[in-house]
Design a protein around this nucleic acid. Structure first.
Lengths: 160, 160
DNA sequence: TATTGTTATACTCTATAACTATA
DNA sequence: TATAGTTATAGAGTATAACAATA
């Protein structure tokens, strides 16, 4: 069972090096790292309420509007295909997803949410949204408005 | 060892529920979640270059300016004390940290970086800082200035 | 008794390598 | 041969419960 997982202790790695002694860059970097730990900790905490790890939750999230093969799933999650077997099998054993033979390729299997899996996913997704919304309640309009742009600028490198 | 780990596939959980149908709140939430995945993926990637998991890296980071007992370490990392035994033992076996008897309490052991551990920590920390700085290179002054404030507002709940 | 830490045990998650079956 | 997926295996990381030693 998942349980706590990374409850954001704020102390991470951040040193003074690597930023060329620029204290402003250091503060920005530190903020991003801490932010990621806080958010991940909340994700883990909420997911745990549904007996889900963050990875299982991501798996279910992907399946909301897709019916991918194991390889595509692995690509989305950044895992090896062999890791998918167990991940999907555990979810399948819980009745959250099911494997289906691909109609186009005899080697492939497609993974889909079961009705129970969809119900759980919807509840968990709502809980995550509620928690993050709660967490960001005190942000100013300006802060909210800028966040999506910040993410957009950081995202591209993720594919590199 | 560690390897990839959560390479930010952007698809997480975010649904439309839990935000009371507020599309702006949804965008903010989604941005935060994606941001956390991107940053965590980069942390994992950089740490992996030093054969460290994110947790091992956090452990070393904590030890930079502290010599805590196992229980205090567990509290900082949000783990059970029993989980610390293996975590510290693996780091110890690699020569990165060492256990010392506490001079004040015969039951306690203190954990400290070895010179090799400190050297590795410094290098990894610099690499993390460099990577995050690189990642945030295109942010505007306004965006950078905003981040620390956002973090400050999200942090308090972490202790609740 | 209470606290600090370890051990025993079990499970999730991950990867590499080898394998099966289909294309 | 190449691709999709599973299996075998190994190891990190986590928790719960039971234990030992010290306070």
């Amino acid at each position: 069972m998942p349980a706590e997982v990374i409850p954001a202790g704020s102390e991470v790695l951040p040193a003074d090096a690597g930023t060329d002694g620029d204290p402003e860059a250091l503060r920005t970097m530190d903020a991003l790292v801490q932010l990621s730990f806080v958010v991940q900790a909340e994700l883990a905490r909420v997911a745990a309420r549904y007996e889900l790890s963050v990875v299982q939750a991501r798996l279910l999230g992907i399946l909301r509007d897709r019916r991918p093969g194991m390889l595509e799933l692995a690509r989305h999650l950044g895992l090896d295909k062999s890791s998918m077997t167990g991940l999907v099998s555990r979810a399948e054993k819980r009745g959250l997803v099911r494997r289906e033979p691909s109609p186009h390729d005899g080697r492939a299997v497609l993974v889909a949410l079961t009705p129970e899996g969809r119900a759980l996913t919807d509840r968990a997704a709502a809980a995550v949204a509620a928690r993050i919304t709660e967490l960001t309640a005190t942000l100013t309009a300006e802060e909210r408005a800028l966040l999506p742009g910040v993410v957009a600028k950081l995202l591209p490198p993720a594919g590199a």
